[in-house]
Design a protein around this nucleic acid. Sequence first.
DNA 1: AGCGAATTCAAACGTATGTTTGAATTATCA
DNA 2: TGATAATTCAAACATACGTTTGAATTCGCT
Lengths: 201, 201
Amino acid sequence: MKTKDKILDVAEVMFSEHGITETSLRAITQKAGVNIAAVNYHFGSKKNLIQAVFHRLLARFFDAYFEALSGATSVSREQALHAAARAIINQPDGLDYGRRFMKFLQAAYAQQQAHLRRYLQTEFHDEYVLFLGHLAGHGLSKSQQFEFFWRLQFLLGAVMFSISEYRTLDAITDSEYGLRLAQDSLESLFVPTALAILESK
Amino acid sequence: MKTKDKILDVAEVMFSEHGITETSLRAITQKAGVNIAAVNYHFGSKKNLIQAVFHRLLARFFDAYFEALSGATSVSREQALHAAARAIINQPDGLDYGRRFMKFLQAAYAQQQAHLRRYLQTEFHDEYVLFLGHLAGHGLSKSQQFEFFWRLQFLLGAVMFSISEYRTLDAITDSEYGLRLAQDSLESLFVPTALAILESK
DNA sequence: AGCGAATTCAAACGTATGTTTGAATTATCA
DNA sequence: TGATAATTCAAACATACGTTTGAATTCGCT
């Protein structure tokens, strides 16, 4: 495999698993079996590498999301939530991708990586707007949009945290209650809860 | 003010505002106007300082929480949610404390500070168990406890994220919709949504 | 095969980190 | 006041970081 892709793969795992700031280029390149100078040769800087990892995670999500909608003309909120849930949960490698994606998002928010928010809104502007449109619905008043915005943050926080901590939580429920959450159960617990967050009361 | 408290105050703000790993002892001590060696003199190490900050944040939350319940004998889930919301939102310094607390929690989870989770469950064991008991209710079956556990993670994620990002989100809605969320509105949006997360479907 | 570009490599650069030291200063209290 | 303990301080320690360098190696193509 190409050096560039080896670096991307290892960086995605390590950034997600141990945090962005906490992961050194030396640790990444050592695990990937490449020279440390390769990072600056292929990506220019650590910041650019972070963006490249983010780009791949985002592209995979939006690809799977629009694929799951398979060109439906008008998309209901519930359809959108199901498609998003599947894009995160039902991937070839199970929840591993979703966990990394959510861990990365969480780390990005917690570690003041503002450049990543800018990156999302410029490089994936169209996908981002479409996706939000599906969730928001149409013909909302200003104050309804305002409330929806806040509920969306509740939802985003709930998803980021529970998915990114999936392994820990799964281990806890297994030892505590002898029960574990299957992938399809996760989806059928998640979608109604998400709807409730966006529409309660 | 004592050097030890100056360090604690500045560390709490900077850890929350810029992340734990990203905040150096030099930056803290410089802002606090004390010598850098004072950290290791008063706290022993950076890790101990992190725990001390966490301790103070937790103590303040639980104090305000049980104060808000003011010795009620049996506590309903809704009462508990109101008390928790007030403990975070209605503090003398407004949302500043809650924001820092949630930012710190979020950073702790994202940055693999496992020692902090251990710290909570040992140093605040009794408060922690009581608080969870109020939210969980009684007489739940194994599978109900299991589902409650997951819903609680949704709720925790929603709260951590929306409160910790309050300033950013408030600025966005202000410029986007010309609307801002008052503290009491936040509580009356939050409690029903929290109930919905725990009880939907 | 042989040339030019692309890539890899060991080594070093400058800077920043948490921690430690031992002397200087300040506070405590008989 | 004077001795003892607590605290502060400038300086250095060892280590780790992202980045850069220039030579060595590999690759792509005629």
